[in-house]
Design a protein around this nucleic acid. Sequence first.
DNA 1: TCAATGGTTATTGTCGACAATGGCGCCGGG
DNA 2: CCCGGCGCCATTGTCGACAATAACCATTGA
Lengths: 226, 226
Amino acid sequence: MNEVLVDSSRTLADRVFSRLQDDIVRGVIAPGSKVSETDLAGRYGVSRGPLREAIRRLESRKLLEREVHVGTRVASLSFDDLIEIYHVREALEGLAAGLAARLMTAEEVAGLTELLGQHEQQQDLRHDTAYFQREGDLDFHYRIIQGSHNRTLIRMLIGELYHLVRMYRYQFSTVANRPQKALHEHRRIVEAIEARDAEMAELLMRRHISRARENIEQQAQQRSPQ
Amino acid sequence: MNEVLVDSSRTLADRVFSRLQDDIVRGVIAPGSKVSETDLAGRYGVSRGPLREAIRRLESRKLLEREVHVGTRVASLSFDDLIEIYHVREALEGLAAGLAARLMTAEEVAGLTELLGQHEQQQDLRHDTAYFQREGDLDFHYRIIQGSHNRTLIRMLIGELYHLVRMYRYQFSTVANRPQKALHEHRRIVEAIEARDAEMAELLMRRHISRARENIEQQAQQRSPQ
DNA sequence: TCAATGGTTATTGTCGACAATGGCGCCGGG
DNA sequence: CCCGGCGCCATTGTCGACAATAACCATTGA
């Protein structure tokens, strides 16, 4: 989504890291499956050295789970894990929205407004609905997080949590069943940011993510009603 | 503080990771200084392979900064970085305190109360003040974070942010100049947790960290009054 | 004297091979 | 028939060597 995928730049370990991360997130490699270093090295055409470095980085992002002398397996998120992540998202993205309302530049706000307009148009035309519900939604949040201008916060949300959220969406092919409501909430958040109302922006963002979490909890109950 | 330092367990890369992290946090290796892979390999008596893995992990924790084909240098925190971190801490530890008030077991609450009692005693006797202000303070927060029972939250705070905070404290030899107030705030937080008042615990924790941040901002202004 | 350019050198990036550990299946005994 | 021990094998952990890149310095020209 955001990260550069130019295969001719940087180092080998960096490229295999990007590709492997993408394959994991998109479910090309089945969640929970064991992956052998030798297999992966062959698959990506590199030696085990750079591959191991990529594995270590993905391990610290919780996309891979490693057990010494046993092997590495792709992380498989449970519903509980996802609920935990959403609690953290609520706190962090609430902070981000508040900071964004105070610190976003006029250009950033304009870009955000434009992005939202595009989403609303897509929604009206019933075009590319799946895209909006997946990457489009993340794009919106992505902009606001960047607007916080807090590098630590950006790193934690974009660099760590979002890959897990994306993986989950692919894993359970979650088509958010409340796109209109979500879009409406997005609109109100943007309005708060445009008005530079930090408290309101934070409140609305927290509520927005909180509702998304409740939605997931409902789905979980329906699928496995104990 | 928390991580096992048993040098006879796990893998070489894990051990050199722990030792290197400790040396960086404690300032044994000067912040901002360049570190050569060959030098470090010799220093810890390992090959460059495991060392590189340790470097990658410390890099993703922002304790090391790497530039391809140029070198690795120890991160040196700016005041701005620290302020950013404290904003994130405020959001995350506020969440943690709220969750702790709801989810901590009776044993955990008892242990927390006992820890606080020890700190108050140390404070009264003016014993080991430096310790309280450094590791002791972190111990208190550490317990509450663990009490949140949210693995993602624990990982982000303990696994990532706290090492940076610790490094900063060593780097600027910050002796918190408001230990009595901090201790009093700790007491009130514990009372809220004992009363299972989640909202109050969150509010008090946020205020506690917010005040610590303001304290740092004051110090920064005094040292470099523009 | 200064700047540009070339070579040299130190450092990192990559690779293949060897060592060590844990899992798995076979075999024997109860 | 079941259980425990033993040995093989696959996989990971570690190492040293080679290749590639960028910084540094000296030299030369203006």
